[in-house]
Simulated scan of single mutants.
Amino acid sequence: MRSPLTLLGAAVLLSATAHGQSIDAQKITFDYVRLPLVPLPAGTHSYSPEVALRYTDAVKQQKADHETAVADAKSKAEKDKQEYKAQSLKEKALNRLLLDQHKPGEAVIPMADYAAQVYDAKTLASTYVNLSGLQRAQGADGDLRVLVSLDGYTQGPVTPVATQGSLKVSASATGPGTKHGYEVSYKSPVSVKVTAKDGTVLSDELIEATTAYTVVNTETFLGDEELNNYWRKNQMAFLRQLDENIMKTNMKLVAEYLDSKFGQRPITRNTAITVVSDKKINYDEYPQAYMKALMGYKLLADPTRAADAQKQIGEAVALWDKALAESNPKDKKARIDEKVTAATLYNDAEANLWMNKFDEAEMLLARLKLLDISRYNNMAKELGVVVQDQRTRYTANKKS
């Protein structure tokens, strides 16, 4: 089956036939250093990671309560045996006849509820608590203290569910039927607190995504008895796997949260610069602008070369702006016709973004959307998201 074209892949195929034009979207990749959403205090170079398990006491109490329940069950069973043993034969016969009381059996041990796993906090901290652009301190003397607090696996409702479907009724035939299983819900809330060396709290948040219940289904069986047998044998292993899965998922969310809020790491950008050419009409500014923009974009990975990057990108913008000055989208014979205008607007908007001229970038994208060319609408929407994110980060750091 043919795979759908990606947004960038589709852009590469852009072409126009007017004047024998060739409109080629050249795929490019470059890195840029993403600014943090929360600016760090001047002189911040290191951080001390810590993970706190806030549920360990609850787990200890849960296990202690179960041990008490087991001891009580055994004590009661032993007491019943002694009382039965102290009865005369006549009392035993009468109790059996009148009260249907028989010889006491062994203690009925209550089944333990699943207890959240208690992980190694230091291992979690070293594995998942990272801040790009900063050094991990050897002890607790980092410029930042990053505290990740786990509330542990929390069991939600376990609900019987029945599903209708086609079941095998014989070796060669199937028929409609009902399968039975359980729907299991669970969560594991996580909080993150980041504090500067002077005690200033930079962030103290409950990661919202970790507060919602996740729902999964067990295997299904033809009858309730089979389901119950399966659950008795496999419940603990099933829930333990959910516990491990959600811990890893949530700690990855923590890593993403910290990186976005406070990190300064290189981000790879995949985009395109469109180059226009024609055998009869001069479009020399387009390959020139392409080379200048590409050189400028490649310099964004090195903050010390910011001025050089701005110079190269600015020269590309000047060429595209000059071309847009003669834009005539309604004239198919114009040098800067509708399709060339659209390609130029996108090139120009991307370049203005990396010059931190966000208003200009958004204005160019607005002009592009007015042309209402579906493929460019999609590209403008994606670029608009990047513009908003960069504007937010740039503004926050500029204020600081």
Results as ranks from 00 to 15, higher is better:
2 R>Y: 11
5 L>C: 07
8 L>Y: 07
8 L>M: 13
15 S>T: 12
18 A>D: 14
18 A>I: 01
23 I>T: 04
27 K>M: 03
27 K>H: 11
27 K>A: 14
27 K>I: 10
28 I>L: 05
30 F>K: 02
30 F>E: 03
31 D>S: 14
39 P>W: 04
42 A>R: 13
43 G>S: 10
50 E>M: 10
50 E>C: 07
54 R>P: 01
59 V>S: 11
64 A>V: 01
66 H>Y: 12
72 D>T: 02
73 A>P: 07
75 S>F: 06
76 K>L: 11
80 D>K: 13
82 Q>N: 15
84 Y>H: 08
87 Q>F: 05
88 S>M: 01
88 S>K: 13
90 K>W: 07
95 N>K: 15
100 D>G: 02
102 H>R: 11
110 P>T: 06
112 A>S: 14
112 A>K: 04
114 Y>L: 09
118 V>M: 08
121 A>E: 14
124 L>E: 03
124 L>I: 09
125 A>S: 07
130 N>C: 12
132 S>C: 06
136 R>A: 10
138 Q>T: 14
142 G>V: 10
142 G>W: 00
153 Y>K: 00
158 V>G: 04
159 T>K: 13
160 P>E: 15
163 T>E: 12
166 S>D: 08
167 L>P: 08
169 V>Q: 10
169 V>K: 07
173 A>I: 00
183 E>V: 07
188 S>F: 04
188 S>L: 07
191 S>P: 07
191 S>E: 11
192 V>N: 03
193 K>Y: 01
196 A>T: 01
203 S>R: 00
205 E>G: 00
206 L>A: 14
207 I>H: 04
209 A>G: 05
209 A>M: 08
209 A>R: 05
214 T>E: 12
217 N>Q: 11
218 T>R: 06
219 E>D: 15
221 F>N: 09
221 F>H: 11
221 F>I: 01
222 L>V: 08
223 G>A: 14
226 E>I: 02
227 L>D: 06
228 N>T: 09
228 N>S: 15
230 Y>R: 09
230 Y>S: 10
233 K>I: 02
234 N>M: 03
237 A>Y: 12
240 R>Y: 06
242 L>K: 14
245 N>K: 13
248 K>N: 10
249 T>L: 10
252 K>V: 07
252 K>I: 12
254 V>L: 08
254 V>N: 00
255 A>M: 07
255 A>R: 02
255 A>G: 06
264 Q>N: 15
265 R>G: 04
269 R>L: 03
272 A>Q: 01
273 I>T: 03
280 K>L: 10
284 D>V: 08
284 D>I: 00
286 Y>P: 00
288 Q>K: 11
292 K>W: 11
297 Y>E: 03
299 L>E: 03
299 L>C: 02
302 D>E: 05
306 A>H: 06
313 I>M: 06
316 A>D: 05
317 V>R: 00
322 K>Q: 13
327 S>D: 03
329 P>D: 04
330 K>R: 12
335 R>H: 09
339 K>D: 14
345 L>W: 00
351 A>P: 04
355 M>R: 14
360 E>T: 13
361 A>W: 06
370 L>Q: 15
375 R>N: 08
376 Y>D: 01
378 N>S: 15
379 M>P: 00
382 E>V: 06
383 L>M: 15
384 G>D: 08
386 V>F: 12
389 D>S: 11
392 T>C: 08
392 T>Y: 07
397 N>I: 11
